[in-house]
């Protein structure tokens, strides 16, 4: 269960959100510049809120009251960046394996096999290629594999389908949903596209100028207060 209360003064407005999710896909929906990415960055530990509390399964990531700010590397939160942010000097396989060594939390858990994850995301045949030679959809799959290899407790995706052509977008949209069902961790997906919202969301938070104006829960709309 993820609990998020974040307040942060941005250039044009103050971001103020408050939500909880336990499973499924939460879509953060809104026009660009509504503060969606800042919400993701706050959860991942890449941006520090002015005020608030961020808690995942009883682990406190951020608490203004208790002056706690756990660094990003210790949060076990997967992050798929808008332009994928693949390491250009590493092969697909090296990219996918990058996070494993950083995973300090070795409490006897079964470690994923890179080959299994690459197989699942259909990138095994690309393993020795460099990111520069991949298509948008392939880059997206590598970014997903890299994030999932660290066995995160939560996956954040910033506009994961925005840079893709229509056909790849439809295909990956389905795969994302299926991936979430298989992986059984909450996904938070940022988008400004209505079709993606309708297709992907188990729950949704509509943002405008840093404030939520509507929440949606499994197609049951309710006003936000």
């Amino acid at each position: 269960m993820l609990e998020v209360t974040v307040k942060k003064v941005l250039t044009d407005f103050t971001l103020e959100v408050d939500f909880t999710i336990s499973d499924g896909i939460l879509v953060l929906f809104g026009p660009s510049g509504a503060g969606k990415t800042t919400v993701l960055q706050s959860i991942a530990g890449l941006s520090i809120p002015d005020y608030g509390l961020i808690k995942l399964n009883n682990r406190i990531f951020f608490s203004a009251a208790q002056v706690i700010n756990v660094p990003a590397r210790l949060r076990r939160v997967g992050y798929v960046f808008q332009e994928y942010a693949l390491f250009p000097h590493m092969t697909v396989k090296q990219n996918a394996m990058y996070g494993i060594k950083g995973c300090k939390d070795m409490d006897g858990r079964y470690k994923l096999s890179v080959l299994d994850v690459m197989e699942m995301l259909k990138i095994t045949h690309l393993q020795d290629r460099y990111p520069v030679s991949l298509s948008g959809g392939e880059k997206q799959r590598v970014a997903l594999a890299r994030a999932l290899m660290t066995e995160p407790d939560l996956l954040l995706l910033d506009e994961p389908l925005a840079a893709l052509d229509d056909k790849t977008r439809r295909q990956l949209r389905g795969e994302l949903k299926e991936l979430q069902r298989r992986w059984q961790i909450p996904f938070i997906i940022v988008t400004h596209d209505r079709t993606e919202l309708n297709y992907l969301a188990d729950a949704a938070l509509f943002l405008r100028n840093g404030k939520p104006y509507r929440v949606l829960n499994r197609n049951k709309e309710q006003p936000y207060d």
Binding site: A44, R73, K104, R146
Partner: peptide, 17 residues
Amino acid sequence: DKNLEQAARTLGSSETR
């Protein structure tokens, strides 16, 4: 691209790494 360094952090890397 600063996002590459951010990505490395979310993948569990220390600042030195």
